[in-house]
Nucleic acid binder design. Structure first.
Lengths: 193, 193
DNA sequence: AAGAAAATATACCGATCGGTATATAAGCCT
DNA sequence: AGGCTTATATACCGATCGGTATATTTTCTT
């Protein structure tokens, strides 16, 4: 039986809720029902575990979207997948206590450069992905040529991040619903040919 | 001399950077150059100091906007003040390590109900303010009647929060610039009569 | 200047922190 | 079953945590 995987599964939401720095060893032993011996037998230290827990949360929260995007045939369906995915984002990440990317980037910016760097890179990957989709849409003439991809990628990502954050501070997933509608409308009215 | 005010001034950015939970007493004594005796002579405990530091940060970061809004004569100038204010938001809150509202809401959601409640209320106040402005605009016929104020307030606030968050995770204030342009455009094309 | 009052510094408290060394238990091989 | 290896639990480490009691300094009053 893979205890390392079991520990990660139990510990990942704790890190996301109590903070990747703030979660204490006793929080982790309490969540797993195991002792420090088991934890340190499978992970080299708390930071190592935090990083792997972050990756675990990303695999559940964000990577599925990346996979989904890569399976779409063209830019418009990819964009639709992005907004549809986030319409279910609240429920998807509710158990882990919110979006891990937002949590880590706010949590670790001035306290843990290594983790912050990972969050920053992920956000950049997300942004680059959006830019790529927009450029692909221009290329295939699904989208107009006369807008700046970077600009609109930033606007779309801002809306996604802001709506996710607000959905959790208000426990109200309608923030995501209206924001995704707004992005769909933006695409329809300003980006499509 | 008002040492309580001095302590708050020095300590407020530390709380915002290292976390309202994560900042330790030794972080605080280091930042102020004073000892625990001075701190506990002026504040009852760390949480009390954290709350007052949060208020201090809000007075610098957000309340000036509320004041500015209240001085505007009509809905359109109020909306313009909102976007213009946030164009300078990065520089304004850079020294304190980011937007205190975002920090606290992510930081304290699962760790400090009292502080989280304060952040939640503030966010709600912000949202209500936007709704009120939109309704005022409808009333004075500056804005159309056929849109839902709550919906657009949520969209606008999402964009603001998301852009602020991203500006700090990428150290790139252009996120705020393009998001505010986008909000201005949204108002111009979809809300104005 | 002397003494009282207020504010700050120092010294200390038990509890908890992350981490490790050792002891115990569980699984595996023959 | 017996012995070996691997994994988990226990016991303990120094450091730091938030907080307090006391000592010292500073400020105010007269």
């Amino acid at each position: 039986m893979d205890t390392a995987a079991y520990i990660l599964e139990k510990v990942a939401p704790i890190f996301n809720k109590r903070g990747y720095i703030g979660a204490s060893l006793s929080d982790l032993t309490a969540a797993t029902g195991m002792t420090k011996g088991a934890i340190y037998g499978n992970f080299s230290n708390k930071e190592d575990l935090a990083i792997k827990a972050f990756n675990y949360n990303l695999r559940k929260a964000i990577y599925p979207l990346f996979d989904l995007i890569s399976k779409q045939p063209d830019a418009l369906t990819k964009l639709k997948v992005v907004t549809d995915y986030h319409r279910g984002h609240y429920e998807r990440v509710a158990d882990m206590g919110g979006c891990p990317m937002l949590r880590v980037s706010s949590d670790t910016q001035h306290t843990n450069p290594l983790l912050f760097d990972k969050a920053q890179r992920l956000s950049q990957t997300f942004l680059n992905g959006l830019i790529e989709i927009l450029n692909e849409g221009k290329h295939s003439d699904q989208l107009r040529q006369d807008f700046d991809s970077m600009t609109y990628a930033k606007v779309i990502l801002s809306m996604i991040e802001g709506a996710t954050s607000l959905a959790f501070t208000h426990h109200d997933e309608s923030f995501l619903a209206v924001a995704m509608d707004s992005i769909d409308m933006l695409i329809e009215e300003k980006l499509k040919t």
